[in-house]
Nucleic acid binder design. Structure first.
Lengths: 236, 236
DNA sequence: GAGTCAATTATTTTCGAGATTTTTCGTATT
DNA sequence: AATACGAAAAATCTCGAAAATAATTGACTC
């Protein structure tokens, strides 16, 4: 008789692919933070978390520790955990740093990418385009899927970069920027053709025009910050 | 009656400044990995760890999860934890990535640093020089202190960089490189005047010669890789 | 009223045992 | 000999309760 529902063998694993409760809890809490369900600054009390996510204290603690590593959660010894704060300054800093890393990774990826990489890229772009169409038709329940495919596209762009460390750094920064991107979407920041931006980047990448692709990617990364800045501080 | 010795209030806190057993265990295990006491690839079994570090499984699990965030430990679901592997290729990748980040951070730091920063820098350099002298006299028990002051010096160099994210990325990469640096020291890789390299960097930084300082720092970062490559692959 | 201090309450931190999964090893079968 | 199978052993993963710490309350003093 099983006492608790396991992630792998349980009847309703909350997160597909999760092989342990820690991983499932981690993925769920991360999603809730990125999505704003758990707002910035929120104190993460264990009783609340245990009720909400249905796992024990040690399991939660480990999941939260992983999130601290992602800089999505902060912790103070003996004082518990909080959802990491956000700010426009932080987003500006994040964007500049991400630009430095991602552009360099893209440069190397274009240099080293082979035919298989090109194929992956075309595929990822196509899948992203499809969900963009549906999103444009007004199906906001596809936001999670959009985020997933958008992430896939950007990760595929730099996948051929041979530097594992550069990609590791990129992963951390990209995940962070996902938080702000969702806020940007929620704030209905418009006046932007994301599809066209992606299209321009991939075309330059396939044409092996390194400088153009990097310039376009940099502009693409900067665009969300630009628009969000204007929205939040309209006077500037 | 206390059942176990606490980190803060216990009689013999293993790690100074640790406010919880998780933090103490984390710091101790990290030190042992950086120092090579726990060699690359080692399977980290809980029974062994409990015996060695004297804390419970959940506590260890959390400490190890933090180390996974530092990329000093790897984990595979349901298959436990291992000390992260090292390789010359990884070190080369790490060095290139660190160079990209640290040089940019230094550039900004020199640009934004004020008198107080200059003072901190001179102080950190002095403290480092002192321990370097003692180390040269053949007191290998000062290796931990050398590492600490070396870290302080490099962190102070970029402390005035206003980008928190750039500094965060740097912290991860620098800690990683500490592993290889210690190996390099253990392998008695010599033919190098580290003190002179540091001196050149700080002089250029204080003179606000951004380009020179960045060039020297880049060469300084690359030097360990160069020497270690030659030592491990003498044929090249 | 402001400030201390002790008692109470709330919260975090830790452990050890039990549940689950993986690995090992002996046996049988081809 | 090689493979497949299954029971036993070993290891990981999880929970819930107890211990330790922090925060709150309220009585008391100045």
């Amino acid at each position: 008789m099983e006492k608790y529902v396991t992630a792998a063998g349980g009847r309703q694993p909350k997160v597909v692919g999760a092989r342990s409760l820690v991983e499932a809890a981690y993925a769920t809490i991360r999603h809730d933070i990125l999505d704003g369900v758990l707002p910035p600054g929120l104190k993460l009390r264990f009783e609340m978390l245990r009720e909400r996510y249905g796992v024990g204290a040690s399991t939660l603690r480990e999941a939260l520790t992983r999130l601290v590593g992602d800089a999505l959660v902060t912790s103070e010894e003996q004082r518990g955990f909080r959802v990491a704060e956000i700010s426009l300054d932080d987003f500006a800093d994040l964007t500049r740093t991400r630009k430095l890393i991602e552009v360099e990774a893209l440069r190397q990826s274009i240099l080293f990418g082979d035919d298989a990489w090109e194929g992956d890229l075309v595929g990822a772009f196509h899948r992203l385009s499809k969900v963009e169409e549906k999103l444009a038709e007004g199906l906001p329940e596809l936001r999670d899927e959009f985020e997933e495919r958008n992430r896939d596209f950007h990760f595929t762009l730099i996948a051929a970069c041979p530097s594992r460390w550069l990609k590791h750094m990129h992963g951390i920064l990209f995940q962070q920027s996902e938080r702000y991107r969702r806020i940007s979407l929620a704030a209905r920041v418009e006046g932007r053709d994301v599809h066209a931006e992606h299209k321009a980047v991939i075309e330059a990448a396939l044409a092996r025009d390194v400088d153009l692709a990097c310039r376009l990617e940099a502009e693409h990364i900067e665009k969300t910050l630009e628009l969000l800045s204007r929205t939040l501080v309209p006077s500037s």
